[in-house]
Amino acid sequence: MSQQLIDAITDMREEDALKITNQMLDSGESPLAVLEACRQAMDVIGKRFEAGDCFIPELILAGEMLNQISTEIKPRLQQDVTQAKLGKVILGTVEGDIHDIAKDIVGFMLDINGFDVTDLGVDVPPARFVEAARNTGAKVVGLSGFLTLAYDPMKATVAALKAAGLNDVKVMIGGGQIDDQIRQYTGADAYGKDAMAAVALARQWTGV
């Protein structure tokens, strides 16, 4: 049944995915088996997204399915499932910018791929990124921003992290009008064109 669940999720069959989850649980299968099927399904989806075979709507529906499945299995978990996390990532949309869709998708993909994500939300001043990096010990910071209004706040955030002595923290930037020109302008370590690029960068920088 695990394979059926994987197939339902990767085929974007939401009702089937929930039905099979309940069937698995009712038939005595462990919630961990359900979680593992979800993880494998997301692996497939992530690869398809990278290959250009699925797109943001599929990621969003996958997120919805996983949320609903989590809600089903949470009460049935015997103990806390502490999946070993690959590393910590701070994420946020920069100061003055309230766009969040891209950031949320990146956060979701990072989380699914095993990263411990601290999402600071939108309109985040540089000082809050610095504080979060200090408090969590995260070595990866992701800055999201849309249009030209994000450029100077991204630059200010990179500068603030350096000024705070957090030189071993790597910064990736992404968003609608972000490219290598802006990576250079802001002093960021890398820019990502999409959520899977963010995952690849996070993996690279945490030595996975």
């Binding site: 249009l147 030209t148 450029y151 009008q177 020109q181």
Partner: peptide, 9 residues
Amino acid sequence: VPVSLLKAA
């Protein structure tokens, strides 16, 4: 003409 060019190039 990218806006990034007009800002940063």
